[in-house]
């Protein structure tokens, strides 16, 4: 009996070790490209034969900022991101309210159509967007690129917000009414605090999607609307891996900031669901 238990424990330990080995390997596998870029962006005279770069430098970052015109590009990216977030959130609030709180025929079909840009290959969708935008002369405008981003941001906003509104308990609103709150007070004291996490989550999701969006930008950008992912991609074509790596690293900074804020302020899964199922 003892032997069996010892054997069982040994097996358990073995499984644990195996699991950890696999998970750590997987993490390294996932992180490897990122580490590669990080090292490349600060290394000098490093041609990949050595384990680590022989010399460290921040020169590539200076080059990236100057040659790559990063401040201008960052400004473009942020302006486009803000427009995309604003439009997506407004769409998300109205559509989410309809999806989450109303019974309507054809709800599933409509939802499927709204999710379509997320489901088909981005290049297919981007090609269509580009053709329409060329006729409308929206190519190489902030609004144009932002609207293209909306096609992927809005579905997220709608999903998050319809879940938020769905989780809004009708009875709680009724309770506020019986307690003496009129429509305005009901909105500010009860509805708004309850949906705020959902709206914030939707805005953060929309922004990160716009910020990261590549394919749609590639087919709608112009000289005045280069965004960070596109600029980095173009730098690859120039052949300077070190400068490109530095750009790529600069691009990561805002993402990490957002992640840090989310982690500190709220649990991400809570943001997604709002206050659903309290």
């Amino acid at each position: 009996m003892r032997l069996v238990r010892a054997y069982g424990r040994a097996m358990w330990d073995a499984r644990l070790i195996l699991a950890y080995t696999l998970l750590v390997s997987l993490s390294l596998f996932i992180l490897a490209p990122f580490l590669m870029i990080a090292l490349r962006s600060v290394g000098k005279g490093w041609f990949g034969r050595l384990w680590l770069p022989p010399q460290l430098t921040l020169d590539w970052y200076r080059w990236a900022v100057e040659v790559g015109n990063i401040p201008e590009v960052m400004k473009n990216t942020l302006i486009i991101g803000v427009i995309a977030v604003a439009v997506s959130t407004v769409i998300g609030i109205f559509a989410g309210w309809a999806f989450g709180r109303r019974q309507m025929p054809g709800k599933e079909v409509l939802m499927a159509i709204i999710l379509l840009p997320r489901m088909i290959p981005p290049i297919t969708y981007a090609l269509g967007v580009a053709q329409i935008f060329y006729t409308l002369e929206l190519v190489d405008t902030y609004l144009g690129v932002a609207l293209a981003h909306v096609s992927v941001c809005a579905p997220y906003a709608i999903l998050v917000l319809s879940a938020t509104f769905e989780g809004l308990d009708e009875r709680v609103l009724e309770a506020a009414g019986v307690c003496g709150a009129n429509t305005v007070k009901r909105f500010f004291y009860v509805v708004l605090p309850l949906i705020m996490p959902g709206i914030l989550a939707s805005m953060i999701f929309s922004f990160t999607h716009s910020y990261n969006e590549f394919t749609l930008t590639l087919l709608t950008y112009g000289p005045h609307t280069v965004t960070l992912p596109v600029r980095t991609y173009l730098a690859v074509g120039d052949g300077y891996w070190e400068i490109t790596s530095a750009m790529a690293m600069l691009m990561v900074v805002p993402s990490l900031l957002i992640l840090a804020v989310i982690q500190r302020r709220a649990k991400p899964e809570k943001l997604v669901g709002g206050f659903k199922g309290v």
Binding site: E174, A175, G177, V178, C179, G180, N182, V190, P193, F275
Partner: peptide, 20 residues
């Protein structure tokens, strides 16, 4: 008369407390 002016107290089946 609208609900909020009726001066009622109500207890709900699902409690309907304000979760926040």
């Amino acid at each position: 008369v609208p609900t909020h002016q009726r001066e009622l107290g109500m207890v709900f089946q699902n409690f309907a407390l304000f979760p926040h």
